[in-house]
C-alpha cells in the first residue's frame, strides 16, 4: 500500500472545516464581548488572585498525586494479566467520562463530613475534606488521574519491553529496570499524561463545588470564581474565562510541540 497520505478527499476537508469553525465560534464570541479595558483590573483584583493561586496549588497537588499513584496503576494495568483486570481498569477510569457532579456526589457520600468514611475522619481526627482545600485536591485528583493512567498505559504498551528485559537479565531489580529503563523510554507519554491530568484538575468545577463547597481562598477555584461572577458581573466572568483559555491554550501548544510532535517529525 503506497497511497499518498496527505491527499484527503474534499468531503473530509469540508467537514473538517465545519468542525474547526464550530470550535472557534464560541471563542470568537467570547473575545468579541470581553471588556478588554477591564481585563488588567480583573486579573489583578484580590478575589481573582486568590482564586488563581488556589487553582494553581490544588491542581499541581492533584497532578503530583496522580503521578505518584497513577504511574504504578498504569504499570500494573499494562503489564500484569490478572483476572478482572478490565473491570479494575473500568472502575479506575470511569470518573473520566462521568458527569463531574456525579463524582462530587459520590465523594460527598463517601468522604464527605457525614459520609460513610468521612464521618470517622471528622470524629477521630477532626479532619474534614468538605469545605477545605484538601477536598478540592481530592475532587480534582478523582477526575484527573484517569487521563494520566490512560496515557501512560498506552505509552507502556507501545514501548519496547526488550530493553527492560535485558536489564533484568543483567541483574537489575524490576523496580530498578522500571526506573532507569522503562520510565525514560516513555518520558513523552509520562509528561503528556501529567500535563493532561493537570489541565483537567485546573479546569475542574462540578465535582469541586459539589464536594468541597465554595469559599473564597479555601475552595473557590478559578473555575468556580468564573461561574459565580457570571451572575453578578458578566464582564468579570468573561475576563476570567479569557485567562483560563489563555493558560489552557499555551499548555496545549507547548505540549504538542515538545512531546506530541515527535511522532510527526519522525
Amino acid at each position: 500500500m503506497t497511497r499518498r497520505r496527505n491527499q484527503t478527499p474534499r468531503v473530509a476537508r469540508v467537514l473538517a472545516a465545519i468542525a474547526v469553525v464550530f470550535f472557534c465560534l464560541p471563542f470568537i464570541g467570547l473575545l468579541w464581548k470581553t471588556p478588554w479595558s477591564r481585563i488588567l483590573d480583573v486579573f489583578g483584583d484580590a478575589d481573582s488572585r486568590d482564586a488563581l493561586w488556589l487553582s494553581i496549588r490544588t491542581s499541581i497537588a492533584a497532578a503530583l498525586l496522580s503521578l505518584v499513584f497513577g504511574v504504578p496503576l498504569a504499570w500494573v494495568l499494562a503489564t500484569s494479566n490478572f483476572r478482572g483486570r478490565n473491570v479494575v481498569r473500568a472502575l479506575c477510569l470511569i470518573s473520566m467520562i462521568l458527569p463531574p457532579v456525579v463524582g462530587g456526589i459520590s465523594l460527598l457520600f463517601s468522604l464527605g463530613r457525614s459520609g460513610l468514611f468521612g464521618r470517622w475522619l471528622d470524629e477521630w481526627f477532626g479532619f474534614r475534606f468538605t469545605f477545605s482545600s484538601w477536598g478540592v485536591i481530592v475532587a480534582q485528583t478523582f477526575v484527573a488521574m484517569p487521563f494520566l493512567v490512560l496515557t501512560v498505559e498506552g505509552a507502556l504498551r507501545q514501548s519496547d519491553t526488550r530493553f527492560a528485559e535485558a536489564a533484568r537479565t543483567l541483574g537489575a531489580s524490576p523496580w530498578y529496570a522500571f526506573r532507569r529503563v522503562t520510565i525514560p523510554s516513555i518520558a513523552g507519554g509520562l509528561i503528556a499524561g501529567t500535563v493532561l491530568a493537570w489541565a483537567r484538575a485546573f479546569g475542574e468545577f462540578g465535582a469541586t463545588i459539589t464536594f468541597a463547597g465554595n469559599y473564597p481562598g479555601t475552595t473557590r477555584t478559578l473555575s468556580i470564581e468564573t461561574y459565580v461572577s457570571l451572575e453578578t458581573d458578566p464582564g468579570r466572568s468573561m475576563a476570567l474565562s479569557v485567562m483560563m483559555i489563555g493558560i489552557s491554550f499555551v499548555v496545549l501548544v507547548v505540549l504538542r510541540d515538545r512531546w506530541l510532535g515527535t511522532e510527526e517529525s519522525r
Binding site: G112, R113, S114, T130, G213, N214, Y215, T219, Y227, V228
Partner: peptide, 17 residues
C-alpha cells in the same frame, strides 16, 4: 460555603456537610 441558590444551602444541610 456560599452556594449558588437556596437549594444548595438545603442540600449542604441535608447531607450533613
Amino acid at each position: 460555603t456560599f452556594e449558588a441558590n437556596v437549594s444548595g444551602i438545603v442540600t449542604k444541610v441535608t447531607t450533613g456537610s
